[in-house]
Design a protein around this nucleic acid. Structure first.
Lengths: 356, 356
DNA sequence: TATCGATATGATATCGATTTCATAATTTGA
DNA sequence: TCAAATTATGAAATCGATATCATATCGATA
């Protein structure tokens, strides 16, 4: 490895003091153009490059932000939603010349330790927490030591004094349920994710809200969760199909899960979308490429990531700014996974609705 | 933000010298147990936590590794292959207590600048380059300044003195082409990615090798590329179908592209797998969830990432170690996107095939 | 010409840790 | 019991940069 040339080496060769070199680096107006030129020339000759660690130590600022996420959750590496978030964050960081530092832990405990290390070890200036979760200890920790952070998702508590970027998930979920109802579906199932996450609850309540407003009854049997370690898509599908009156439409809170459910349904011989309409969430690339292409709620994950990074950086530069929160609008993007429900002739006369 | 407590504060309160505290932190055997206990107690009371930047400055080691990737390539954020790589890297880093630093640039130029910043600015101890590309300037730069790095993919040059982790891509590609031929396909197309990448070339030559060995003729018209900014899946499919004798099987060098092609084919009314057999690469989650589920070459991307990080860390700890390279085996995972090709009666009677 | 005010640069302390060298305290051996 | 060897700790330099304060130089003004 090549030997580093420091500010002192430059200073010596250029016959100036280290402080002068430092000023040249920051292009201070207090140094004459003549000296600047000379010093810069020497820097070139010597191949000088600034060592960040030295600067970090005195400036107490790393110009890097930490990303906290959990493996094995919706917010995790193998979900394209995560990638989009990351891409948005990365993009914003690049704009502002910030760097990204990633947690690598697998368990709650190890993630917590890593966050402490990032924060106390002063490795990052601020943190973006990619989830909002009820029994989480990272956020309370950050709050306690008053460390700058932004979360993606609605905080479980302290909503007014924490910065967050989120969608209006209950509204989004309500709209998409309305959409299914508008298509004539009456028996609609809900397949959520891990209910420890705030986003899961919001989407569930949006779903319920829609049913209520539209005068449909809530069937507990239609409410399912896909949760790693507990219920997978196959189980959920099985349970749903075993019901005497299986749903004809499904609101599934994540594209990835939607895909899994679609495959499980087809394994059971259900034709899509004919026998089951499905809407997903996030509008990831899998929604575009699935078969049938998935109608989904675009949560604009790139924007979510982008805004969170922008806000955090703004907060870092203006520590006293008001802790605003940002709501990114959602859009239903219609593709081919939903069809108008065909009225069945059957027992009672629910059949005799007017055709549309 | 809370005020930091430093080693000096601890020293003062515990009535010892800063050097003693430092020794307690590193659990030096030269400090008596009694003193250690006392100092540790004070550290607890004061809520002391080590500041990494101070340590980094003297130890000249950051315990973090940089990841270099390009947005908008196979190796990019929106491809699940990338996520798997990242997961593998992250996992290995966590094991060894290393941290991850991510590049955020979009253009070749900005990525190059970021790498220089990482390297010269001493922000990372080593880097993993997630691609191997012909006209790349990052790798030559790293080589020139003798900075530790590992690449994923086969180096364009200097193969023997650079560490890399790769699959045997020509072999893998040959095998999977053999597989298609073994299924009775004679007219096989190849859909590659950006041909600037080494991996694309290797897979193409494996493909050609297979044809040659199996005594099939190479049809130039069957060789296509999906390349952002140039040809997309729709174009490729259109071109392929316009041929007087379209292929009956397709080797596509990435699952993601396979999916796109599959959708494009279906848009053209081609039934899958009946009218076109397809194999992909990487065995990402989209292969599992696609319809039909995709037969694909498992490149074991998690392992690829994992091994690259392990190797790099090993290199960092033993700078003089031999620059070994690691080849991760590939496995064809058969799913439902390929079927045995039904032998056609010659042109004239090809309609009179037996129904199946 | 003496003084003041810019302007340009240097000397030095500092950020928070580690490490080398020195020294004090304790134990060992003769 | 005293020198030698060991053990435990402290003082100070250091990593590479920045920032504060001091000083030298120069031109302008009275």
């Amino acid at each position: 490895m090549h030997v580093s040339v420091t500010i002192k080496d430059v200073a010596k060769k250029a016959n100036v003091a280290p402080s002068t070199v430092s000023r040249v680096i920051s292009d201070s107006p207090r140094i004459s153009e003549k000296t600047k030129r000379r010093v810069r020339k020497v820097m070139d000759e010597l191949g000088y490059h600034l060592n960040y660690n030295g600067r970090v130590l005195v400036s107490q600022s790393t110009q890097t932000i930490g990303i906290v996420t959990k493996v094995a959750s919706v917010h995790s590496f193998d979900n394209p939603f995560f990638s989009e978030l990351l891409r948005g964050i990365s993009d914003a960081c690049h704009e502002k010349d910030y760097s990204i530092y990633l947690t690598t832990g697998n368990t709650e405990e190890s993630i917590y330790r890593e966050v402490v290390k990032m924060v106390q070890g002063k490795r990052v200036d601020g943190v973006i927490v990619l989830y909002s979760r009820e029994d989480d200890n990272v956020v309370p920790y950050l709050r306690e030591c008053n460390f700058p952070f932004v979360m993606i998702g609605k905080p479980v508590s302290h909503t007014s004094d924490t910065m967050f970027v989120d969608n209006d998930n209950v509204q989004a979920s309500k709209e998409v349920t309305d959409y299914l109802i508008g298509l004539g579906h009456q028996k609609i199932g809900f397949v959520g994710g891990d209910s420890h996450y705030e986003v899961a609850r919001d989407r569930l309540s949006g779903f319920k809200l829609s049913l209520r407003e539209q005068g449909l009854e809530l069937t507990e049997d239609y409410l399912k969760n896909i949760q790693s370690g507990k219920a997978d898509a196959e189980t959920v599908v099985e349970e749903l199909l075993q019901l005497t009156e299986p749903p004809t439409g499904l609101v599934i809170t994540d594209d990835y899960n939607s895909m899994k459910v679609m495959r499980a349904l087809e394994d059971k011989g259900i034709r899509l979308p004919d026998e089951m309409s499905i809407v997903g969430f996030n509008n990831t690339m899998i929604a575009r490429l699935s078969k049938p292409p998935l109608t989904t709620v675009d949560t604009q994950s790139f924007q979510l990531g982008h805004e969170s990074a922008r806000s955090l950086i703004e907060l870092l530069n203006h520590p006293d700014m008001v802790k605003k929160s940002i709501i990114i609008p959602t859009i239903i993007v219609e593709r081919e996974s939903c069809i108008r429900h065909k009225v069945e002739k059957s027992e009672s006369e629910q059949d005799y609705q007017a055709p549309h």
